[in-house]
Write a protein that binds this DNA or RNA. Structure first.
Lengths: 179, 179, 179, 179
DNA sequence: CATTAATCGAGACGGTACGTCTTGTCTTGCA
DNA sequence: TGCAAGACAAGACGTACCGTCTCGATTAATG
């Protein structure tokens, strides 16, 4: 049931975009009554969130052997996710709604933020082990730098995603004081 | 009358939050007919944008005498704007809506993005003139770095804005290859 | 507008029956928003009532020259209205709802009951003038007798309406003590 | 368990009125699963009908020794049943629903109509035996007259039930051509 | 100064989605 | 096995809001 709903949500997001997704349409597509949806999710937003967030733990990053390589790989993933219009739209809309609805944040954080942070932590710890970094840097700042800069580049400035991953990786390296 | 509308918008944003602002409520609060609003703004979003953005070009950045000082001053302004819940909410919601409605971008870019970019350009040009920078860096990346990292820090990670401006300025300096 | 709604209601009553009439369907059929309907009528029932009651003042009864003739004519009208399934359904449903919702009664009475009563009053007054009746009988009882007996015959006992008008007229005459 | 359901129905009818009675509420109140209710009654209406009608055959009419006396006694019973708001509401609502759903009629007729008719038949047969009536009158018309006139008096015209039984008995006597 | 034209506040309108509710069926888990 | 508890699909309800529109009344500009 939850699976049918989540699938319907993702299909509709891809087909019509965040603003046009309708609870009725989701219910119809999933072959489900609206009541069943509202029994699980208090609002449309929670439903969207749950459907989108459920399959985040996508690709574990490989160890490329260097900090620069790892950062480039990570940047590709981040940019890839945010450059996809549907995914980005959901992220942006949920951020926007979270800015008014603190309750959403509680659910956002563990599923989204923490898993991202774990990846970043692992990545810099590997660099420390390799001796590429003298000490652990400010992880929050690195986290914000990677995600925020990509977001802004793609969706505020609306620039070309083409060589953004490389720029981002170089930027992060420089910021970490790494040659 | 634009003033009454803008005032009403800002009051309502503060009172009920972005998602609860209604064109009817704005019209009633401003003592204005809805038609008058739609004569000026094509959509609710444009109205909100205009009302919130109208006084952005308020503070022209002073020349502090050093790149680091200028960046710190700029970071304080950026963080100040984004840390305000109402303003940030509007920015986030407009970004979200823009992600589904490219037409919105056309209207917002000149007023918002271009004026920000002008400030950044001026700032680095001063640094080049001073000899602090050897050449003009990637302005887009710097732009995305400053706005995006602040946005992400404050509204994705929801961390403390306290020493963010200093962190941001240091980050930008390092990224520019400046001591 | 009200006319379009009333027409749509009557069409749908005829097509699908009272229980299947939907506010959405009425709105769609009338080319009208649901809000417009709910601006006029607090509930679906009020809308149905208004649509059905609006054209009651149909046929003024002719003077046939005798009490018996007048009563027969009236009985034909009454039976004719109640034998029509759609009309009867509305009357029955509104009676049923009125039995739980006294507010409906307030609106029912003037439009429906009083106009019926006026006809009956006129009819017996003519009979008194003619000398067919010695004095004014109990009008309420005559009213209840004509409407109620027809209703019960047709919709409780579900008998043939064929010679009901004549039976009714004879019954009423006898009850009035008229040869 | 039928008793618990019937009791719950009657309580709820008294508390909230026909329109607000819910199968879920009945089940909960009766401490019974909904499935158990639908195993016995095909629809909510049948359940209501069964619960309300179950104790109708309560009072067998006594032989008062005269047609007029018998009719008065019967009229008291009829008026008593219809004057009770809850009972009347159910009768009216079931009539209304039956007018759209002929299938309901099949179920209700034997239990309701036929038992009433048996009483009336017995009553006039006694009158014939006594010599008060020369021949058997139109039983259907008498049936419709008694029930319908009472219904209309109480629930269409909404008049006082006070002396209705006497009026009804006198009316029926006159209609039967009995002094 | 008078007349026309534009603009205003007010608010009804068509449309659309929301979240709630109820019905009658189907499932689960306890006795 | 049989029942209570309650999840489920379907679909109507009444509400809220958007963006368009019609209305008089008031103002502005013009002849």
């Amino acid at each position: 049931m939850d699976l049918a709903v989540a699938a319907a949500v993702r299909e509709l997001l891809a087909e019509v975009g965040y603003g046009r997704v309708t609870v009725d349409a989701v219910a119809a597509r999933a072959g489900v009554g609206k009541a069943a949806i509202y029994r699980r999710y208090a609002t449309k937003q929670e439903m969207l969130f749950a459907a989108v967030v459920h399959d985040v733990p996508a690709a574990p990053l490989p160890d490329t052997g260097s900090l620069r390589g790892d950062l480039t790989a990570l940047a590709h993933v981040v940019v890839g996710q945010l450059a996809d219009p549907a995914g980005a739209s959901v992220v942006l809309n949920l951020m926007a709604e979270a800015s008014n609805n603190p309750a959403l944040v509680e659910r956002f954080t563990p599923a989204f933020i923490d898993s991202q942070r774990a990846v970043i932590t692992m990545l810099v710890e590997r660099a420390v082990d390799r001796g590429e970094l003298a000490e652990l840097p400010d992880l929050d700042l690195l986290h914000a730098l990677l995600g925020g800069t990509a977001l802004s580049w793609l969706h505020t400035l609306r620039l070309d995603p083409q060589d953004l991953p490389d720029k981002l990786a170089r930027l992060a390296c420089t910021a970490l004081g790494h040659a």
